[in-house]
Design a protein around this nucleic acid. Structure first.
Lengths: 161, 161
DNA sequence: TATTGTTATACTCTATAACTATA
DNA sequence: TATAGTTATAGAGTATAACAATA
């Protein structure tokens, strides 16, 4: 139950949040860690004029050609309406194309153009390098445990939805 | 490099995203896991008419009485302007009070009212119960590794800021 | 000058209802 | 009737610049 640091401290100091309550609050740490990863990602993707959402969509389309929009929205864990503008952007930049599915004329099959594939390849390399740097403080086993734990939490959410 | 599942699958199916690329993309898993935790938190806090941000602020004020707004913003990892409306809400509900600091009349010392302390106590209990349930798939060691890894990522972000 | 809290503002992400065209 | 994609819209969360009061 420490008191907050002296108010004379400069703003570069990080407040030592002295509580037993938030230390066990996983959501708090998850949010802060996600903020860091997200901020790093934004910087990394800026040269490619991609955001996290346009990046994720592009990668998933490149790796899963023929994907339909509803499937992509599921994979990205976003609502279908929110995917539309993302694809509008990618299609407008001619990185991705929407093609009618002959067997179901309501649906669109998503594929990446050669330009989209090239940009994806370069962006993925950049992201991988940045993530390696960001996670360099963790050993391989810890990193594997982290990803496995996050995946389990994902699933436990799906099961109660 | 599996193809996406048959389009005849129902919408309750989860697309098996079959790629080597996103599996190593920690940001992707972090986002999805955070979404799950966040969604659970929203549901848990609804009876208390709190959101994640108002909850975090309230807990931190209760545990660190006399905190100043800039310190709280740092602890919550948000910008000072965004904290103002959060505190307006908590103060309006008389859960928290802003009191002038005599030694620095620019600053406000934040303290929780008795009502704020009571609500906090009950909300914390609810959140702890929900997080326990959410993380029940992880053993203690994994949970500890998860929190430690998230904390390290937080810090590595701060150091490069 | 610099800092605390504030206002105004803009941008991104998220969530829901309702429409259209197909099935 | 149900589904795929779309439109419109509203609500959070986030980020920056600029201001008044104070240091």
């Amino acid at each position: 139950m420490k008191k907050p640091a002296q108010t004379s401290a400069t703003t570069t100091d990080i407040l030592m949040v002295s509580d037993a309550t938030l230390r066990g609050f996983v959501g708090y740490h998850m949010k802060r860690a996600f903020n860091v990863v997200q901020a790093d990602l934004v910087r990394t993707l800026q040269p490619f004029e991609l955001r996290m959402l346009t990046y994720s969509a592009l990668v998933l389309i490149v790796d899963n050609p023929g994907l339909r929009q509803s499937q992509l929205a599921d994979a990205m864990d976003i609502e279908r309406p929110n995917l539309v503008v993302i694809l509008d952007e990618l299609e407008g930049r001619e990185l991705v194309s929407r093609d009618r599915v002959p067997t179901d004329r309501r649906a669109y099959a998503l594929t990446a153009t050669p330009a989209g594939q090239l940009l994806c390849k370069r962006a993925v390399a950049a992201v991988e390098a940045h993530e390696r740097a960001l996670l360099s403080g963790l050993d391989d086993a810890t990193r594997a445990t982290l990803v496995a734990a996050l995946s389990k939490i994902e699933k436990s959410g799906k099961s109660r939805a």
